[in-house]
Design a protein around this nucleic acid. Structure first.
Lengths: 134, 134
DNA sequence: CATTACCTTTACGTTAACGTAAACTTTACC
DNA sequence: GGTAAAGTTTACGTTAACGTAAAGGTAATG
């Protein structure tokens, strides 16, 4: 059973300890205590990882929490399974949109890079011409 | 030459007029005026569209502005082309990471949906068994 | 055993991205 | 020509996601 201190995880994920404690305030993680010190399990570590993954694609902390809770059996009582399916479908739509957005941006960047390289090339050719003329 | 009012665009993009005026405050758009009224061109419309696309994938307004400015010839003087190429490369890395994040989440959702459908099926079979036993 | 390195809580500060309200002008319509 | 609909500016409010500082506890190390 691996355990981590708060600064272990902060270092690993490139965030501050304040950030991790903040996630606890918000109820996104709930580490054990050894005395007063927080002790994080592998499961806690995964939750934090998922939260940060959510952040990278623009989810709010609450949205990440909601997504993570989809895995929590406690929330998956039968009455809610249908609404859960709807939630999943909605999420999927948004992510699909994100896929399009990201790939669109990537090809925009390709274009910018091409323009940029062309400009540099044109410039260096101009310089070469200038030298041969001297 | 198409022109749009502020509420045209607000309606089209599903945001408030306040939002669009806010983007102007931040220097992200700069519509013409007809008297006091704002008049948006097709180019303005595209800028707003790009800003909102950026938002959906988690960019800040400043970051979106920076990306849009990559297309602006004024910023592309030769001295800056190399640093621009670096910027493009950095962006590309982040977007690549986003692609991974989004696809990872999509497959997570697939799993949740599978679990969910299994649970529903198990439940309906249980009910069927119950009925035949009565 | 002192000091250095982490850990803790409490609490106020900050930034981005708007929301909301007030007070006013301009255009459209009956 | 009044009134409703849309536009304008100004300005203060709000929420999320932490930053930062203060004041203190604990554990390892030379």
């Amino acid at each position: 059973m691996e355990h981590y201190t708060i600064s272990d995880l902060a270092k690993e994920f490139g965030v501050t300890t304040r950030t991790i404690r903040f996630y606890e305030e918000k109820g996104l993680v709930c580490p054990q205590r050894q005395g007063q010190r927080r002790l994080y399990t592998a499961a806690d570590r995964v939750r934090i990882k998922l939260i940060l993954r959510g952040k990278r694609i623009g989810l709010s902390l609450d949205e990440s929490a909601e997504l993570i809770d989809l895995y929590d059996p406690a929330h998956n009582n039968l009455e809610q399974l249908h609404s859960l399916l709807q939630t999943v479908a909605d999420r999927r739509d948004r992510l699909q949109q994100q896929l399009e957005d990201v790939t669109a941006m990537l090809s925009s960047l390709d274009e910018v890079e091409r323009l940029c390289r062309d400009a540099l090339e044109a410039n260096s050719e101009a310089l070469a011409t200038q030298r041969t003329q001297q």
